[in-house]
Amino acid sequence: MRPEASRNPRAPRVPRAFRAAALLASAAVLALLTACSASPGSAEPPRGAATAAPTPTAAPDPFPKEPLTASTRYVAVGDSFAAGMGGGDEQGKCRLSPAAYPPVFARKAGIDLVVNAACAGATTSDLLKHQLIALDDRTDLVTVSIGGNDLGVAAIAGDCAAGKAAACRNEVTAALSLLNVLPDRLDTVYSAIAQAAPNARIVVTGYTLLYDSSDPNAPDFGTAAALNAATLGLNEVIRQAVDEQRADGKPMEYLPVDFAGHAIGDRRPWLNTTGPDVFHPTAAGYAEYASRLIQLLGKAQ
Rank of each mutant, 00 (worst) to 15 (best):
G78F: 06
Y289T: 09
A11Q: 11
G249K: 03
E66C: 01
M1C: 08
R185I: 00
N228P: 12
A218V: 03
R73M: 00
K299R: 14
G275L: 07
A70T: 15
L127Q: 13
S191Q: 14
A5S: 15
G88C: 10
D266L: 05
L255K: 09
L179I: 05
V77T: 13
T188R: 15
T51D: 10
P64A: 11
I264K: 11
N235R: 03
I133R: 15
E253Q: 14
I156H: 13
A120K: 06
G48A: 08
L297R: 09
V114K: 14
F221D: 06
L234R: 02
R107S: 14
L182K: 13
V181Y: 07
P281G: 08
G86R: 02
P46N: 05
S37I: 12
E44P: 06
A50M: 10
R246Q: 14
F221C: 00
L297S: 10
G88M: 09
G298P: 00
A50K: 05
A70V: 13
R292P: 01
P15A: 04
V77E: 10
D89E: 14
A162M: 05
P219K: 07
V114H: 13
A290P: 05
L186A: 09
V115F: 00
D140L: 12
L293A: 02
R201G: 08
D61H: 12
D126C: 01
S80K: 01
R107I: 00
A83D: 06
Q295F: 01
T69Q: 08
A200S: 11
H280A: 08
G48M: 04
A35V: 10
Y211W: 13
A283F: 03
R201N: 08
V242L: 10
A197G: 11
Y286G: 11
R13G: 06
L297Y: 07
R13T: 15
A49T: 10
P3R: 14
R268A: 07
A28P: 09
I156C: 06
V114E: 11
E171N: 15
S191G: 15
G87W: 04
P216R: 03
Q91H: 02
V153N: 00
Y286R: 10
G121L: 06
G78C: 05
P269M: 07
L232A: 15
V189F: 11
A118G: 04
Q195G: 00
D89P: 04
A300H: 01
I294M: 07
Y211M: 03
K65C: 02
R47G: 08
A162R: 12
A166I: 07
A100K: 13
T123H: 01
E236N: 14
P269S: 09
G88D: 08
P103Q: 02
R169T: 11
R47F: 14
V77F: 11
I238A: 03
A154I: 08
A283N: 08
Y211A: 04
L232Q: 13
D277V: 07
Y74D: 08
